[in-house]
C-alpha cells in the first residue's frame, strides 16, 4: 500500500491549541503556533528556511533541505510531495499543492526555495 499522510491534515480535522482552544486545521494561523509554543514550556518554534527541493527515488516523494534555526543547521527530510508545511505568514504549503488539495481538501500554496516554515525543537536540550 502507498504511504499516506496522517489523518490530521484532512480538511475539517479538529486541532487543540495549547490553551485548549479548538480550531480546524484549515483555520490555523501563524500566531496559533507561536502562542501554543509559548504556553507549552517544552517546545520552541524554529524558523526553517527551504534551501533545496530535490526529487527522491521513492515514489511521490521529495527531499527538502532546510536551514534550521538561528544557526541555520542543515537538515534534510524526505517527505511525500503532498506533505504540508506551515509557512510563516502564508499558511499550508506543499511541494505538490494540487495533490494535497486532491487528497485532503486542504488548500495549499506551492512550497518554494526561500519559504520559511514553522518547525519545532525541544527547549533546553543541552
Amino acid at each position: 500500500p502507498a504511504p499516506s499522510l496522517p489523518p490530521y491534515f484532512m480538511k475539517g480535522s479538529i486541532i487543540q491549541l495549547a490553551d485548549g482552544e479548538l480550531k480546524r486545521v484549515e483555520d490555523l494561523r501563524t500566531e496559533d503556533f507561536i502562542q501554543s509554543a509559548e504556553i507549552s514550556g517544552e517546545l520552541k518554534i524554529d524558523s526553517s528556511t527551504v534551501e533545496r527541493i530535490d526529487g527522491s527515488p521513492a515514489p511521490n516523494s521529495a527531499i527538502i533541505q532546510f536551514a534550521v534555526g538561528e544557526h541555520r543547521v542543515q537538515v534534510s527530510v524526505e517527505v511525500l510531495v503532498e506533505y504540508p508545511f506551515f509557512v510563516f505568514g502564508q499558511g499550508w504549503s506543499s511541494c505538490c499543492p494540487d495533490r494535497t488539495t486532491q487528497l485532503f481538501e486542504l488548500s495549499c500554496a506551492k512550497l518554494s526555495v526561500g519559504d520559511v516554515c514553522i518547525s519545532l525543537t525541544l527547549k533546553n536540550l543541552k
Binding site: 496522517p6 489523518p7 490530521y8 491534515f9 480535522s13 479538529i14 486541532i15 487543540q16 491549541l17 495549547a18 479548538l22 486545521v25 490555523l28 496559533d32 503556533f33 501554543s36 507549552s40 517546545l43 518554534i45 524554529d46 526553517s48 532546510f66 534550521v68 534555526g69 544557526h71 543547521v73 537538515v75 527530510v77 508545511f85 506551515f86 516554515c117 514553522i118 518547525s119 519545532l120 525543537t121 525541544l122 536540550l125 543541552k126
Partner: peptide, 19 residues
C-alpha cells in the same frame, strides 16, 4: 470526533544534539 494536538502538525527539525 478525534482531536489532535497542535504540535502533531509541525515537524521536529531538531538539529542533531549528539554532542
Amino acid at each position: 470526533v478525534p482531536v489532535f494536538p497542535w504540535h502533531s502538525l509541525v515537524p521536529f527539525l531538531a538539529p542533531t544534539q549528539s554532542d
